[in-house]
Design a protein around this nucleic acid. Structure first.
Lengths: 162, 162
DNA sequence: CTAAACCGTACCCCATTGGTACGGTTTGCA
DNA sequence: TGCAAACCGTACCAATGGGGTACGGTTTAG
């Protein structure tokens, strides 16, 4: 597949799943029927695989970012507006905690080559810089909020702007 | 091995090679004999594998961050002081360009699912934030500049500080 | 002439990730 | 009361990319 994220670009590669999560969250934000959409419905409207969408939703649900209601008329619903949902929360939910080094945040002093390690804990300025940069970015900032973008048959072509 | 970087933590994982690069660059900065050290020597003093160190040096050399001199009395030398060497340069040299998405920086409009892609190019605020956070961090900032830390036999234990 | 070191390329192994499958439980509705 | 639709949890499989290695070639001091 491949949506917006790079294939094997380089650093700072966050997973495709995170990309999918943003897509799905955006779609959920556009929902109108009480803001509830089903996983199969989301899969159809986004073009992603249904099992993949389910997986993403499950993870987001586990993190408390969406709420799943079971049963025949079930579906998923945002627990918060996207403007109040930090990007870091989604990243943490999908990819785990945002950390660059192991020595720094985790229990310090567990390096297997602790002896003769010349840069112990020296990466934390980078960590802090990254965290500071990422905090303050909400999903709404990424969504651009085109709101209720229809996706009829044919070729929507969201790109055509400007 | 594993030096300072996390194993499989999460986002923002930059490669171990970049970690090694910082280690090697720091060692080179501590050198005194005209600032020239050999790859085997660096491997021995850092505890890293000799082929791996060579690989890192070769890459750094190709990026112009170090200068390799061949022959019997050859070795590597910094082309700039660490304070004037940006972290982003090292990252770019080892891991490639710092980019989060493919659609944004590269030739736009090559998404295989370009139609119905709801977040085209929406990741660039993140890209910008990351770049802005990383610029302004030099290798000297990471090195801490303990300068000429001896590594005799026994157990150096750099951690023992404070 | 030889040894030591850099250089380039190509190769292999394995861990992480993306994606899938399946059985179970809940719930609206006929 | 049974059925269908949807969420839930877990486990599994395939492939991509990165870490690490090997090898042959070229340069250069002694």
């Amino acid at each position: 597949m491949g949506y917006g994220l790079a294939e094997g670009n380089g650093v700072l590669r966050l997973s495709k799943l995170t990309d999918y999560a943003v897509v799905v969250l955006t779609r959920l934000d556009e929902a109108e029927d009480g803001g509830v959409l089903t996983a199969p419905g989301l899969a159809a409207s986004t073009g992603l695989g249904e099992p993949t969408v389910s997986k993403v939703l499950k993870t987001l649900s586990h993190a408390g970012l969406v709420e799943g209601r079971r049963g025949a008329a079930g579906g998923y619903r945002l627990t918060r507006p996207l403007g109040a949902m930090a990007l870091t929360e989604v990243i943490t939910a999908i990819d785990g905690p945002i950390a660059l080094t192991a020595c720094v945040d985790n229990a310090a002093g567990f390096c297997d080559a602790e002896a003769r390690c010349p840069v112990r804990g020296r990466w934390d300025p980078v960590n802090d810089a990254i965290r500071r940069a990422l905090s303050g970015i909400s999903i709404a900032d990424l969504a651009g909020v085109p709101a209720v973008v229809p996706h009829p048959e044919g070729e929507p072509r969201y790109a055509a702007a400007e």
